[in-house]
Amino acid sequence: MKKMRWLLLVIMLPLLSGCNGIAKNFGGTTTIDLPQNKKLVNITWKDSDLWYLTRDIKPEEKPETYTFKEESNYGVKSGTVIINEH
């Protein structure tokens, strides 16, 4: 029984190594807080990595929160990424 637990841990550990990958591959929610005075421009996935482009916030702009939702074709999983500007 202990060997089975260790085997399961060894198999699952790479899958659980990043919250972004979990949200993308298994559904769930991950939140990213952008650095102070940064504005979100674009966001994309490359494999299990989440890449986002930012720029400096302009004086007339206010910080916003963005919610990106993924819906699978089969409705089995859905992931959410929340981006907070400050």
Rank of each mutant, 00 (worst) to 15 (best):
I83P: 00
W45L: 01
V10Q: 09
P63A: 12
K38L: 05
N20I: 03
L9Q: 15
L40N: 02
L15V: 07
G18S: 15
W51E: 15
E85H: 04
D56P: 02
P35M: 11
G27A: 04
E61I: 07
G21K: 01
I82V: 15
V81L: 08
M4L: 13
L8S: 04
L53F: 09
M4H: 11
P59F: 02
K38E: 11
S78H: 11
E61Y: 07
L7T: 14
R5E: 12
I83D: 01
G79T: 10
K69S: 13
I83V: 13
L9W: 07
L15A: 06
K2L: 11
R55V: 05
K46W: 04
H86F: 07
K46F: 07
I32Y: 01
L16H: 10
E61K: 05
T44H: 13
L40E: 00
H86E: 14
K24S: 03
P63I: 10
T54M: 03
L8G: 05
L7I: 09
L50P: 00
K46E: 06
L9G: 10
K77N: 09
L8V: 10
W45Y: 04
G28P: 02
G21C: 02
M12V: 12
W45T: 01
S78T: 12
I57P: 00
R5T: 14
T31N: 12
V41Q: 10
G75D: 03
V10M: 15
N42C: 08
K77D: 03
P59L: 04
K69N: 12
K3S: 12
I57N: 02
M12C: 15
G21V: 01
T31G: 06
S72H: 04
D47K: 08
T67S: 06
I83N: 00
F68E: 01
N25F: 03
S17K: 14
G79P: 02
W51M: 09
I22K: 06
S48N: 08
E70M: 14
E64P: 00
K3H: 06
K38S: 11
T80V: 15
I32G: 01
S17L: 14
K62P: 02
I83S: 00
V10T: 10
S17Q: 10
M12E: 06
